[in-house]
Amino acid sequence: MSGSDHVTRTLLLSRKVNGTLVVTRGSTSNLDLEAQDISTGHSQVKAFSLLNQTGPYDFNADGLLLGWGLRNNVGVDEEPISGGIYTVENSVDQMVRAGQDVHQNNPAEELNFLGYLNGTRYAEQGMNYGYPECFAAWNVSAVPNNVGLQVGSQFAIGDQNSTVNDTVCAQRVAPRLSFQAHMAPLDILFNREGTAAWVTFHGSWDRTDPVGYKLSVVEFANGSPTQQSNSTTAAIDILTNQDNSRCPQNCFRPVGLAWDGQGRLFMSSDASGEIYAIVRADGNATSGAGSSNPSTFPSQSASGGASGTGSSPSHTTFASAASTMSWMATLNGLCLALVSFVYLV
């Protein structure tokens, strides 16, 4: 795990294929040129069998390659019905295209689909997802020479040439969904029914107007997001900071997600040292969003969610209302643990 950048390794033990471990590995720098070589193992996601293994694996050479050219897919989960592997990717910073700085709103953060662990055929499994030459567009109008591009289209970084250009990038695997640039998704977690994927956005550090710093949810059906790949509204905001202009110093910054036995969603915030519990005031489990009645899934009009400061050990209650859901976030300061319950009705 040597290197100065994305040295974390996310581990996922499959519930669908016994004894299979998924391991994600990021890049060693913002623009890691070694990731162009598949043999380096950089910016790749692989699966390994834990059954009947008598010695250590070599990550670079062994395992089932689910995808490469994946800059930093630190969040990974298994869709519970189909068994499909989905990751969320932190894309490149300080992007330049044709001599112009386009990093404020490009490239997009990504939701990637990497196929299955059970042998089900997926033609693009194990293929190149673009990095470090190709990236997904978010704000197409801000991309120079953007003919033919739409949200989620792969386009080339820097100056185009015979080997790095938009034609080559169009052959790379595009994300299943795209998110606003620099929101930094760090975790993805499906509910049991496979109707919702919850995503934490840690928040930007290199953008004039901070973005992210929130928990969002994406609706799924039949093993795939319900919205098209060029959608800009697939992620519905559930819990946000009250004022992003105070971020990152005085905000909560979502990181990890976990379910408990009652279907409550727990979310950590590393910057503020808090743990949030997302629960429904009507008594239904948060994990049931979208599973039995369309009204249990937040509508787009609910975007914005509840808000808190995350900047002190004890803060007041904030509330907001929407057409289908209302929210209340209450935080109580404790010496050893700080838990916020966010109620959904």
Rank of each mutant, 00 (worst) to 15 (best):
A35V: 05
A123T: 14
E89L: 10
E34M: 10
R121P: 06
M328W: 09
C247V: 04
A156G: 07
T316M: 05
S311V: 05
Q154V: 11
S272A: 15
V217Y: 01
G263M: 10
V76E: 06
R172G: 03
V96P: 02
A329Y: 05
P175R: 09
A329S: 14
L336D: 07
V164F: 01
Q44R: 14
S291W: 14
D159S: 12
G212M: 08
G41D: 11
S49I: 10
T317C: 05
F113H: 06
F297C: 05
Y343A: 04
L51I: 15
W327G: 10
K16D: 08
Q300L: 11
I85Y: 01
G41L: 06
L338Q: 00
P107R: 08
P107H: 08
N250Q: 11
F135N: 01
S291V: 11
P107C: 10
L215I: 08
A156F: 03
N244K: 11
T316R: 05
G194T: 13
S224T: 15
G308C: 14
P107F: 13
H6E: 11
V345Y: 10
N118E: 04
N139T: 15
W138P: 01
N118R: 07
A281E: 11
Y131G: 09
V255L: 14
R176D: 06
Q262V: 04
N284F: 00
A98P: 00
A337F: 05
T195N: 06
N60V: 02
F190R: 03
V17D: 07
G99P: 06
V74I: 15
N244F: 06
R71C: 09
T309K: 14
K214G: 00
S231F: 13
D5V: 12
I85A: 05
V211T: 03
F179S: 10
T324P: 00
N165H: 03
R121D: 11
N161H: 03
S229T: 12
S301M: 08
G83D: 12
V147K: 04
K46M: 12
G333Y: 02
E34P: 01
R9P: 00
T232D: 10
G19M: 05
S2H: 10
G55W: 06
A108D: 05
S14G: 07
F59L: 03
N30Y: 06
V164K: 03
S141I: 09
A35N: 00
N293I: 11
L344Y: 07
A277R: 02
G223N: 14
W205L: 11
E219S: 13
M183H: 02
F252V: 02
E124D: 15
L215G: 01
L33Y: 08
V147R: 13
E78S: 09
Q171S: 13
I236E: 00
T200I: 14
C134L: 06
F48Y: 13
Q53M: 10
T28W: 03
A289E: 01
N128T: 05
Q180M: 06
N284M: 10
D166C: 14
L50A: 13
R9W: 02
T208A: 12
M95H: 04
T208G: 09
V168D: 00
S4W: 09
P132F: 07
L64A: 12
V211W: 05
T309A: 15
A285H: 03
F190Q: 02
G75F: 03
G158L: 13
S162T: 08
D32N: 12
R15Y: 04
T240A: 11
I275N: 00
H315M: 07
R25L: 07
G310Y: 01
F341Y: 04
S287T: 02
